[in-house]
């Protein structure tokens, strides 16, 4: 009887033990999972951060590059304009943005057009005057031509 009871108790204890062990195991597993999840999340966050960082760097690089190109262009254009003798006054070259430059360029084109116009006007006058001078002298020879 007692033996029977003992056996039964043992069995219960065994069972409890088993249950306890199971529970522990489960808990451990859950714990592991949780840890893994956190680790993963962390990793992903890190990854994202890295990507963002990279992107940001890239953006900055691009912007710097563009700025550089723009600056170089501006400088080149400015030096072109300066070479052509445009007067920009006391303005600091570094402060010029492309809008101002555009205006400068327009005024330069205007100037070139005016110069061309002036230049050709002088040419035109000379051609006209030369022709008229020839004719003026030629008229004197016409009566002789008539007799011939």
């Amino acid at each position: 009887q007692e033996h029977q009871e003992t056996l039964a108790r043992r069995a219960i204890i065994e069972k409890k033990k088993e249950l306890a062990s199971d529970a522990l195991q489960k808990k451990q597993k859950e714990e592991e999972n949780r840890k893994r999840m956190i680790a993963q999340q962390r990793q992903e966050a890190e990854q994202l951060r890295l990507t963002e960082e990279h992107k940001e760097r890239e953006r900055k690089r691009m912007k710097d590059e563009q700025d550089r190109i723009r600056r170089e262009n501006n400088e080149k254009e400015l030096s072109d304009l300066l070479k052509k003798g445009i007067n920009i006054g006391d303005v600091d070259v570094k402060d010029l943005d492309s809008n101002q430059l555009r205006l400068l360029r327009i005024s330069q084109l205007e100037k070139e057009k005016n110069d061309l116009f002036k230049n050709l006007r002088v040419t035109g006058k000379r051609i006209d005057h030369l022709e008229r001078a020839f004719r003026k002298e030629e008229i004197k020879l016409l009566p002789k031509d008539y007799e011939a």
Binding site: K125, H129, L130
Partner: peptide, 10 residues
């Protein structure tokens, strides 16, 4: 001659 004296004619 005319070419030379163009200034006068002008």
């Amino acid at each position: 001659t005319i070419r030379k004296n163009l200034r006068e004619y002008s």
